[in-house]
Structure formats: C-alpha cells, structure tokens
Design a protein around this nucleic acid. Structure first.
Lengths: 340, 340
DNA sequence: TTGTACGCGTTATCAG
DNA sequence: CTGATAACGCGTACAA
C-alpha cells in the first residue's frame, strides 16, 4: 500500500477558534452543546465556521471518545445483483437519521476475501458489521468475536449466529415451495441450483427440497437435481436439460439467482406452455417477474426488510441495547402465480 | 444523535508491545516496515499480534498522518437499480488492491440530501468522492472545492466538472440513437422520459433527441414527448398513450429507467408486433434485455467501466497524480437489435 | 460562560 | 536495530 499523499486541506477547530476569537473548546461546545455557549459567542463561531468551511474531523473525534466510527461495514457476495440492491437500500433506509453510514464491500463469494475485508474494515473501527455470509474462516470469526462489535448475519437464519442474525430459513422456504408443488399434484419436480460447493445457502435449499420429497414419500432422483452457473443462461440450461427426452419432469424449482426468469423466457421461445407443459417456480420475486406472463410462482423474500431490520439491530446494539444473541426471522411467502 | 456507547474492545499497539517486550514504536515499525526490525523481534511481535488479535486503528493512524482515511465516498441517486449496481461493482473492482474501501450513500434524487451526505461523509475525511449527480447545491460545491478532495462526477460528461468527470454524453447518446431511428426511416418518433424537473440528465437526453430531429428537419411534436414515473409501468404507460388513437407514432425512444423493457413486454401482451407495428429503442442495455425477443435496440452505456475508471482517477489523485481538471469520456454504443 | 490540561492510538523524528 | 518524545484534532474533566 503506497503512501497516500495529498493536497487535501481541512480547516481545524482551532482555526475556527482563532477566527472567532475564542478557544477551541468553546467552538467544540458551540457545535456539540450550543446551550452552554452564549448567544453572542455562538453567532461569532457559526460565522467563522461558515467562512472557513469547517467540517469536524470524525477521525479525531471518535478517537478521543476512544471508540468506534459511525460507519457500518456491509459485506455482500456481489454488488451486481438486484436482490442485494434491495438489501442495501433497506440498510440505507434503516440507518438514515441515526448518524450511521454504510461502508460496502463484496467478497466475490470467497471466504478468504471476506476475511481480508473484515480485517480491512475493522481498521476503521466500524460501529457494526452486516455480513451476508453465515460461514466464515476461523480468523474472521475470531476477529469479530474479539472485538465484540455488533455483527448481523443475513444470509440464512442460522441457529447460532456470531452475534445476531436477521434472515429467513432457506431450508424451510425451499421446503415450503416444494410442498406446494407436490400438493398441487406435481410429482417429478426438478431442482436447479447454483453450484453447491461451499455454498451453505444452496445446500440448505436443496435439503429443504429433499425434505419435502421425503415427507411426501417421493423418491428423489439424481437426474432431477442440477447445478448451473449463475445468470439467465442457467435457467435456459435447466430447461434444455430437464426438458430433454430422457428426464421427464412436470415441474421445476429454480432455486437460485435469476434462473426462473431465464427459464420462463426460454419456454416462451420454445413455445412450451407453462404450466401445462411444465410448471415453474423460483426463489425470489424479481421486479421483472411481475411483468412476464404468466407471473412466476415464487418465494417472496423480504430483502428490503432484511436490510431494514439489520440496520435496526445494529443501531440498537451500537447504543448499548440488547447484547445477547438475537435472531430475527423475517420469514417468506409462497406466492402462487400463473406458472404453476 | 445519541451517544454511541460500547462494549467494543480493541487491542492497542502498546498492549502488543508490552506482550512482546518491546516499545510501541517497534511494533509500529514491524508492521509498517518490517525490514527495519530484527527477525527475532519481528517474530515475537507477530506472535503477540496473533495472540491478542491486534488490528491497527486506522482512525488514529490517519489522524497522525494528519490526513485522509482510505475510504472513497460514493453517492448515487438510488441503490435499488441494477445500473448503479454495475457502477458500484466497477468501483469495487477498481479500488480492490489499492487499500481503498467504499462508503456508500443514496441521495434519493435530492440535492439537499446529497448535501447532507457530502457533509457527513466529509467528516470521515474520505480519500475521494464519486458523485453521480452533476449539479449540486452551492454549499455542496463549496465543501468539495474547499477540501480539495478528489471528486469524480459520473452522471454526465459535463464540460466543467468540479474536479474530474468520468462519463458519457447523455445528449450525444440520445441524439445518436434518434439519428439512427431517423436513418432507418422512422419519422414520428416518440420520446418517453422520467420527469424532467431538475433532472439534468433527462433534459440532456431530450435535447439530444430534439437536435436529431432538427438536424433532419423533422418538426418536434409536443404530443410525442412524455414524462412517466420510473419503473416498468412507465414503459407500459408510454405504449398506452403513444399507441392511442390520436397520436400515431412509428417508433418510440424510451430514454430512461427500465421503460423500454416494460414497453416491449406490454407490446407482447397486446399482440402488437415489434418493430412492424412500432419500433422500440431504449437507453441502457439491461441484462434482461438480451433475454427478450426481439432483443431491444438500445444504447449500451459502459456502466461497469465508469466505476472502474472513476476508481482509477481517485486512486491516481489520492496518490498525488494528476490534479488538473480531467475529463474521461467512456462513450457509448448504439446497439442495433431486433426492435427497430 | 469560558479556558486549560490531558489523553485517545498512532507514527515521524531524532537520539541512543 | 530500538526507544523516547511529540504531535495529529478533538472532547472530558476540571478550574477560572
């Protein structure tokens, strides 16, 4: 890391003080607790502040308070995903007005990058962490626990979070949607996921799917479970393979990313009727889904609310509220629409 | 703003020093410039660092350097928009490996919120600002100029940026796409935008559209220019109105948000053939566009690259590189596809 | 109501 | 190669 030189100039509190003809302390007070400063002095100070464009130095201020910054560190797997945008927006909404700001990083689905980010962010002494990932390297866990900084995990409703968790159960959600398909009469239900390797959420969803089958005494078939790489093309590929001659499915559960949308559009291109030819269901209700006909049957996950609640938890903890383990289940809804 | 109490604990450099049996200074050196510390000492120190889980305090460090933090402040109109996700991802990619982190805020399309954010972020003494907006309040301008912090504006290729600009010309882009439509033979070209009020980018796009008409000696018609609120439904509304009986258009340019997609889907629902019944063109190539048939004719704006280049400029300036006004034109492409 | 002294955790400088 | 000292900008505690 090279040196960060700079022509950057910032007025200091003593410059304001000099200009206003008072001590630095009086300026500090005028800014923080105006009532304890005479009106006359206060006016002179405000004028000086305006004139030289003084902006307090939070680095110094927070340091003096021997404390943390007013930054909340957020680490998501990727920034290029509209689901996460909704969560980020929720966080921003929830932090607004509490003097807390967002610092953002993406771990590119890698635990080791997450570890680097946590370390780097920790150097800023953030007021809290929001992590989408729920499984971490040992070192990441150690850093987070040692610092006792508020941590909210949001990717899955784990039973033993580091600190707090705000999420939904990926497993139960997947199970619920699968059960719905079964009740609806479908028996050969395909399951298309992003690659399972090391992806806890994907595995949880698969488990949910399998549990639903088991509960209904339907034997799972290996050839009905697919791993596809993210993107619309994954959904297309899912249709290609599962609608191939040998497999034979009557419904497909697209359990990740934008697979469901890609699949629905591919069906339309193929002239394959949905749900008559094959029923489709997917995780998450994207904005675009509602524009397609038929509207995709899906799981509605309150992504924005996850951000909002995570923010609430961070705010509460950073003010010294609850400090015991906390689990917030935001739940999910099975949205029955036209593709099933 | 209430007090931020905290049980948060962080080891200090002197604790490491005590444990390693050296002075704080030696620890600092061992971390920053290992070559100047004997191997033996260095090992003892690393051990101590590991044991107590020491993470440097950037607040204190940067303060001593009387300088800026390693945070880059980014302010976008909204976080819930996949275009901005691409820019954010580009920024993240471009900052990666330079020891700079992202701090993020959304101004909700309001200049006064932007002003508050700039002030709040400035308190963190960021290494630079990236602003999507190109018109600011007087105070915002003042704060940014006074601090001499690197600023990159990215929303439009303005001629006199505060500091630097990395963008494309909204006007030329809109003009180019309109010209293309005209050359293609269309004469009654509708123009659908987000509301113009105070939105410089929207106005620039309209100007480009009007210039293209003028250059081709086509008289602009008021009834062909529409303002719709953001979202797919704006595109739907555009179709509803412009395809109504009285208007009569042969092509429509959707100059904002996801209008083009909403419009194309609405045409499909209506059984309106594209481009035979009406040609469609839109700003920005969304991921989903390529999945629709026909693929939308559009302007391809390199959103990710804008983030990347903006990051590059910030990095360069924060290292004391170029400090004169800088304009980076990332350009755009007219992507001719099936809807025209 | 206002000012002084000190310390937050770190690092540049200079001495040893 | 290592340590002592001072200073970064601000706010608590106390004194005036």
């Amino acid at each position: 890391m090279e040196k960060i030189s700079s022509q950057i100039t910032h007025a200091t509190i003593s410059q304001v003080a000099a200009r206003a003809g008072v001590s630095a302390m009086t300026v500090s007070r005028a800014l923080r607790d105006p009532a304890r400063v005479s009106i006359k002095t206060r006016d002179r100070i405000s004028k000086a502040v305006e004139e030289i464009g003084y902006i307090p130095n939070a680095l110094a201020g927070r340091l003096r308070l021997s404390g943390t910054s007013n930054i909340v560190a957020v680490i998501l797997p990727s920034l290029h995903n509209s689901l996460f945008s909704r969560t980020i927006q929720g966080l921003s909404d929830g932090l607004l007005g509490h003097g807390l700001n967002l610092m953002l990083g993406d771990n590119r689905y890698s635990r080791s990058i997450e570890q680097d980010l946590v370390e780097s962010f920790m150097e800023q002494r953030p007021a809290g962490f929001v992590l989408h990932e729920t499984t971490h390297t040992a070192k990441t866990n150690r850093m987070l626990k040692l610092s006792r900084v508020p941590v909210v995990e949001i990717g899955d409703l784990v039973s033993r979070p580091i600190d707090a968790v705000v999420s939904y159960s990926n497993k139960l959600a997947a199970k619920a949607l699968t059960m719905y398909l079964i009740e609806k009469g479908y028996r050969r239900i395909g399951f298309v996921s992003v690659p399972f390797d090391n992806n806890r959420r994907a595995l949880q969803r698969r488990d949910g799917y399998l549990e639903a089958l088991k509960a209904s005494r339907i034997a799972p078939k290996k050839e009905l479970i697919l791993e596809c790489s993210p993107g619309f093309s994954g959904g297309v590929r899912g249709i290609e393979i599962l609608m191939g001659k040998k497999v034979g499915v009557d419904a497909i559960f697209f359990a990740g990313d934008v697979f469901g949308i890609g699949a629905l559009l591919e069906c339309q291109r193929r002239g394959l009727r949905v749900p008559e030819g094959v029923a489709l269901a997917s995780f998450d209700d994207y904005d675009i889904s509602g524009q397609l006909t038929p509207h995709l049957t899906c799981l509605d996950i309150p992504r924005h609310r996850i951000g909002l609640e995570a923010a609430r938890v961070i705010v509460s903890r950073s003010k010294g509220g609850c400090t015991t383990r906390e689990r917030v289940n935001v739940g999910f809804n099975v949205m029955v629409n036209g593709t099933s």
